[in-house]
């Protein structure tokens, strides 16, 4: 079944926006004093967020992690409040309490972002449990990296989600590296999706740089979850173009390997696919790219012009 045009264009827009947003961050974090703290990018992996989130409906929830920019932008985050938070400004989505690492936007259904590797799945179980408990037609998606599958919490959560038939989709964004460790250095498993068998749930491998393929896979998993047929584990095989963080010199990533994966760029592939299918004219594509560029420029302007929080605002928001 062909993917509707509006979904294809939605994914294209999301991919272009995430890429432009992170290209800007790549430059900005080199400028002394502009962006505090770590900078963890998902450049090259944008198809996962774009494809999965295009399959979701309003009311669905995503639980994401430290490598979250593409997920959040695809779920509908305002680039301005994300950028302001990354800058540590008061107008950021979390008033400067989070910074780039734990961006949480309950208003768009992204409430429980965690940088503790493997912490997402247990919370996703709880979020999906609430959906089931109330009889809501919604589902929860949990994005994890390949490294998270080494955590006990990942396995506890998959087991419980399966046991209780919870409406949850575990999306493993296998970017070939957990920190500096290649997949084969941290597990004997070749396909992380195979782990699903241990929990009696479907495990699906999909090309993690192919947004439409991810969309179709997520749509199936969503339908299963919403129909009360329980969770799915989707493994999206992709690649981390950048280091773990921007301070990582990537000595352990072969240059040829990076080049080979860059040649499979998910943004370029989507652009070509949409053009080949005649879903957009080159003029309209240029207009979309110009618009995305303007969105990112506006986000940077907003962040730079926004005030920092007052130091004593650190004392707020501990308790409800």
């Amino acid at each position: 079944m062909a993917i509707p045009k509006d979904k294809m264009l939605e994914m294209l827009h999301s991919l272009l926006l995430s890429r432009r947003f992170e290209e800007a961050l790549t430059e900005l974090c080199q400028v002394e004093g502009k962006i505090p703290g770590m900078m963890i990018l998902c450049t090259g992996q944008e198809a996962v967020g774009a494809g999965v989130c295009a399959a979701l409906r309003p009311g669905d929830v995503i639980i994401t992690n430290h490598r979250s920019h593409a997920h959040l932008l695809a779920k509908g985050a305002d680039p301005k409040v994300l950028m302001a938070e990354i800058y540590g400004k008061r107008t950021g989505c979390n008033k400067g309490k989070s910074g780039t690492l734990h961006l949480a936007l309950p208003e768009i259904g992204a409430p429980c972002t965690s940088t503790v590797v493997g912490a997402g799945p247990p919370m996703a179980v709880g979020r999906a449990f609430a959906q089931q408990y109330r009889g809501e037609p919604a589902v929860t998606v949990c994005f994890v990296g390949d490294g998270a599958t080494g955590e006990g919490s990942f396995h506890e959560a998959l087991n419980l989600a399966s046991l209780w038939n919870l409406p949850v989709i575990f999306v493993c964004e296998n970017n070939c590296y957990a920190g500096a460790q290649r997949l084969e250095e941290h597990t004997r498993i070749e396909n992380i999706a195979d782990r699903a068998a241990a929990y009696c749930m479907p495990g699906v491998v999909v090309d993690g740089n192919d947004a439409p393929a991810i969309y179709t896979t997520a749509l199936d998993a969503r339908a299963r979850a919403a129909a009360g047929q329980g969770p799915t584990l989707i493994e999206c095989k992709t690649y981390r173009w950048r280091g773990h963080g921007e301070s990582d010199p990537q000595h352990y990533q072969p240059k040829e390997e990076i080049a080979a994966w860059r040649a499979r760029c998910p943004v370029a592939r989507m652009r070509e696919a949409v053009l080949a299918l005649g879903l957009i004219s080159t003029d309209d594509l240029s207009a979309m790219e110009t618009k995305v560029d303007a969105l990112v420029r506006e986000a940077i302007r907003f962040a730079e012009e926004s005030p920092y929080p007052e130091p004593r605002e650190a004392l707020e928001d501990v308790y409800a």
Partner: peptide, 14 residues
């Protein structure tokens, strides 16, 4: 971990 995570996620949902 799953028991406590269940509580965290469900509480956020209300």
């Amino acid at each position: 971990a799953a028991i406590a995570g269940l509580a965290v996620g469900a509480a956020e949902a209300g």
